[in-house]
Amino acid sequence: MPEALVTLSLRVNGDDVRVAVRPSQTLLEVLRVGLELTGTKQGCDKGDCGACTVLLDGEPVLACLTLAVTCEGRVVQTVESLTREDPLVDAFDCHGAGQCGFCTPGMLMTAKGLLAKHGRPSRETIKQAISGNLCRCTGYGPIVEAIAAAGEGRRGKKDEEPLPAPLPSWEAPKP
């Protein structure tokens, strides 16, 4: 007997959404498949890696260990809600705080949660905060530096190029 579908209402990245889910679906599956928010990654699907971290009511949690139905009425934020102008995202880019970028969405959401609580976290606090997010590429150093920089309102190193302009407006030349 297939499971009965349940209609779930929740707020995702500022939008009220209603989505039909099965009780056995995780928030991760609903985000990635149901809502096509594939920014959130799956690295293990059993709570060991942190790649699926999203903010649930502002707290970084593992979407792969969250039943979607228990998110009724709650607020979910995924990496799709961030922009490249976001100082944190910008600091990640400036510091090379990601290489393959597969752990990065989870890492960013963990960092978001941290920065919302501690304005200027120490490096030790940052290391603790991201200790549930595994990264296989960077060795973590640049990630810690990027989060510290964002906390201090710095973007990165001094010789950084400015943020590339957003899509510039353009006027076609007169023929």
Binding site: P2, P23, S24
Partner: peptide, 12 residues
């Protein structure tokens, strides 16, 4: 994915 077995959820 590691699918969960099927069940019904109750939220008292």
């Amino acid at each position: 994915m590691l699918p969960l077995p099927e069940f019904t959820v109750h939220t008292p």
